[in-house]
Amino acid sequence: MSNPTNGHLPGSPAAPSHSAPPDRYVPGTGEVRRHRLIALVLDRPGVLNRVASLMRARSFNIDSLAVSHTDQPDISRMTITLRGDDVAVEQAAKQLYRLIDVLKVQDVTAETTIENELALVKIRATDTTRPEILKVVELSRGRVVDLTPESIVIEVTGTEAEIDGFVAMVRTYGIKELVRTGAVVMSRGSGSIEEALKR
């Protein structure tokens, strides 16, 4: 880790009384962006509570949190998306490591990844709007999973932005209900966080 602003060179004589030095960088005050963390945790009672409680107590703002089993018994995988500057998110990851049940945390924000979430959207539909909605669904690679005379339920997967876009498109018809799973992320290529754990 390097200090981005304190550019004082080693060995140069300090001059306390002259030239006011620049303010020291305060961790967490940098540019905020969306980060994606993958955490492998032991599947023990309360582990979700521990993670959630830590994020709350340390004031990290979680956008989404998805939990599921992995291929290894007793190990669960969490995908956490949160906003903060790089240092703050690094701090969040390090705090996660302090939890005894957390095995591995990886910030994959800078990596090339596959990111997907699933949404179910229940849309108000009439005989006149249904064809338009179906057109949008087709373009968004969505799938009709339920159909009634007054409504239509669409399942759609994609990145957060893609689903945001789809929801914006169908909002005009009237959304009766919306649920999203939150993003799940996997890095591209042959590297594996689970295999890294076994080593």
């Binding site: 880790m1 200090n3 306390p16 006011a20 020291r24 305060v26 961790p27 701090q91 302090r98």
Partner: peptide, 27 residues
Amino acid sequence: VKTYAPYARIIHVDIDPAEIGKNVAVE
């Protein structure tokens, strides 16, 4: 923190990685 040890570079040794870089950035 902004005006803390303004001329100093910092070596921070701690057994807990989460303490390093938490309150001040270190070299």
